[in-house]
Design a protein around this nucleic acid. Structure first.
Length: 369
DNA sequence: TCTGGGGTCCTAGGACCC
DNA sequence: TCTGGGGTCCTAGGACCC
């Protein structure tokens, strides 16, 4: 029994609850190709200001560029070397945000859908239906019709399983992972394939003799506490089983803070330059903070010394929205930064007070499932 | 090869209090 | 003189995600 609509769509108030994870395929590159159709079929790389001689990394590469071994996070310079005739474009956040909003609107327009946005190009969709594959195909068709963009859909009985399933659905496909086939599909894979396990944690797990998802799934959660702590230890064991939350939360997102970073094309050594950079970062952070109308309660300054040593300085401050107070706090954090030690990057993060009615926020991307 | 920019959350350890 | 046990708050740093 499903809620029927004039177009015969399936899904609605009755049926089995499912979670769909919708992920746009090569989103940023696809948006660029849409407005420059002549780029279709060509290797497209989007990153930085589109200048491969600058310090910047790849945001997204089209499938044609990925065939040359280019991927997200790769230095633009290297990517350009790998694909000599690539089209390299600057990042245009406004264009991606606009496309993203159209996609999310299409998802919210689906009958019975609860939508939890995870990023520009992905969202969980909660739905009750007897046929999640059919519903997933409807979602793909709706997104394609409204945006001309293709997406992949993972189906799961938990958030984690739906999210991981999408990896098997790409490109433009649908894949279902449940308690029934989770270990069959993923059991022999490395723990790093899990959402939330990166190279560091997979390495630490390996030292405990845990290399595969199946091995993690069968580990006693208590056994992981000495290495990972009381919260993360049991959480990793749960992740190995694919278990966890299965509720899609459409509470509007409330940012915990805002930050700005800047990487200098030439390393800084002069303290006066550092102060100037802090002033500029503060002004940019303040734009975002003041737009929210919430007071700042803490500041963190991130300093990256060349080549790759990062340190942070943090400070709680009395609730304030006063520009000069915040600037004074930021300059104070920057005071005494070692002059003469080349600084490659500065970042400033402002933590904001949470409104009382949003103190629970909603599901974080990590740690809280 | 040489590493962006915007986020989130967790943990360890010190300071301080009772 | 040597030093308990529990709690909270803060800073620094780490890890991961898109």
């Amino acid at each position: 029994m499903t809620l029927s609509t004039r177009s015969g769509q399936t899904g609605g108030v009755s049926g089995i609850p499912w979670i769909l994870h919708v992920d746009l395929d090569q989103f940023i590159a696809a948006v660029e190709v849409l407005r420059r159709p002549e780029l279709a079929g060509r290797p497209v790389i989007v990153g930085g200001r589109g200048d491969p001689t600058e310090r910047a990394v790849v945001s997204t590469a089209s499938y044609e560029a990925r065939a040359f071994g280019v991927g997200s996070g790769m230095p633009l310079r290297i990517a350009a070397r790998k694909v000599p005739d690539a089209v390299i474009l600057p990042v245009d956040q406004e264009a991606y945000l606009a496309a993203s909003e159209t996609v999310m609107a299409a998802l919210r327009a689906q009958p019975g859908a609860t939508v939890q946005v995870l990023g520009w190009d992905e969202a969980f969709v909660g739905i009750k239906t007897e046929n999640p594959e059919s519903y997933a195909r409807q979602v793909q068709a709706a997104v394609l019709e409204r945006t001309l963009l293709q997406c992949s859909v993972g189906i799961g009985d938990t958030l984690v399983r739906a999210k991981v399933a999408t990896g098997f659905a790409k490109p433009a496909g649908v894949f279902r992972l449940t308690a029934g086939n989770w270990l069959g599909v993923l059991g022999s894979r490395p723990t790093k394939d899990l959402w939330g396990v990166g190279s560091k944690v997979s390495g630490r797990l390996a030292k405990l003799g845990i290399k595969t998802v199946a091995e993690l799934a069968s580990t006693d959660p208590q056994h992981l506490i000495p290495e990972f702590g009381p919260k993360m230890g049991p959480w990793y064991a749960e992740l190995g089983r694919g278990d966890g939350a299965s509720v899609v939360d459409d509470t509007p997102w409330v940012a915990r803070g805002h930050s700005r970073e800047t990487t200098f094309q030439r390393d800084l050594t002069d303290p006066a330059q550092v102060d100037d950079a802090v002033r500029e970062l503060t002004a940019r952070v303040l734009e975002d903070v003041l737009a929210e109308g919430r007071p700042v309660i803490g500041l963190t300054l991130k300093i990256r010394y060349a080549p790759f040593v990062t340190t942070t300085r943090a400070r709680k401050i009395p609730d304030t929205s006063d520009r000069s107070e915040i600037l004074a706090g930021a300059l104070d954090l920057a005071a005494g930064i070692e002059a003469g030690r080349p600084i490659r990057l500065l970042g400033l993060r402002a933590e904001m007070a949470m409104p009382d009615d949003a103190r629970q926020g909603h599901t974080p991307t990590r740690g809280g499932w």
